[in-house]
């Protein structure tokens, strides 16, 4: 489970933790328009994605479970296209709502 070695990914900026996962992890800061390779298909990242964020491995529909580490980490709330960032705007917890700060109250930039 969480402690196993991640599988090698053809694109070193992305990490697929488990074969059954439907998201890949971002290992290097990506800017909108950067081209990455997901499952051997070149795709332009539609928005900035900082280290630690997740990209959809395929198109996802509302109600789909997102799998990371081979485990469900929540449910999709909005249609997500392959390569798009999967985060609080399109994924929600199946346990407790996620609390975030917005707008001018952000205290750190996520991408540099």
């Amino acid at each position: 489970m969480a402690n196993s070695d991640p599988a090698p990914s053809p694109d070193h900026r992305l990490l697929l933790l488990r074969p059954e996962d439907n998201v890949v992890c971002v290992c290097a800061n990506l800017a909108a328009g950067d081209t990455v390779s997901i499952d051997d298909r070149e795709i332009a990242v539609p928005e900035d994605a900082a280290v630690g964020f997740k990209l959809a491995r395929h198109d996802l529909a509302p109600g789909d479970k997102v799998l990371k580490y081979g485990a469900p980490i929540g449910s999709v709330t909005q249609p997500i296209a392959k390569g798009a960032v999967v985060h609080t705007h399109n994924l929600k917890s199946d346990y407790l709502p996620t609390y975030t700060l917005t707008g001018d109250t952000r205290f750190l930039e996520t991408a540099q």
Binding site: V26, A50, V51, G52, F53, K54, K68, A71, P72, I73, G74, V86, H87, T88, L91, K92, S93, D94, Y95, L96, T98, Y99, T100, L101, R106, F107, L108, T110
Partner: peptide, 15 residues
């Protein structure tokens, strides 16, 4: 789960 967790790419408590 703190707001900084989400700023750093974590989306949900279970993640």
């Amino acid at each position: 789960f703190a707001p900084g967790n989400a700023d750093g790419g974590l989306t949900t408590l279970e993640e």
